[in-house]
Amino acid sequence: MEKNQILAEVQEIFREVLDNEEIVLANETNADDIEEWDSLTHIQLIVAIEKHFKIKFTSLEILSWKNVGEMIDCIKSKI
């Protein structure tokens, strides 16, 4: 799967979990840019992403992403 495709699907997951249809994600986006995205919703997003892509992240991976781009790279490496 291409990174753009992954980005689009992740954006959809964000919109659904955070209940905000106006969210737009780019590679540089991080938690400071999106109001609803904090340490708690982060986990909910992870659970949804893992379910959607049928993958499993390690704790260290989850804690080390600095932005959406790094998250996408990680997803790509697991699909």
């Binding site: 340490s39 708690l40 986990i43 992870i46 659970v47 704790s59 989850i62 804690l63």
Partner: peptide, 14 residues
């Protein structure tokens, strides 16, 4: 939160 709750929550996320 960052060093206890979040790692635990990640571990218990399912």
């Amino acid at each position: 939160t960052d060093y206890v709750f979040t790692p635990l929550h990640i571990r218990f996320r399912d």
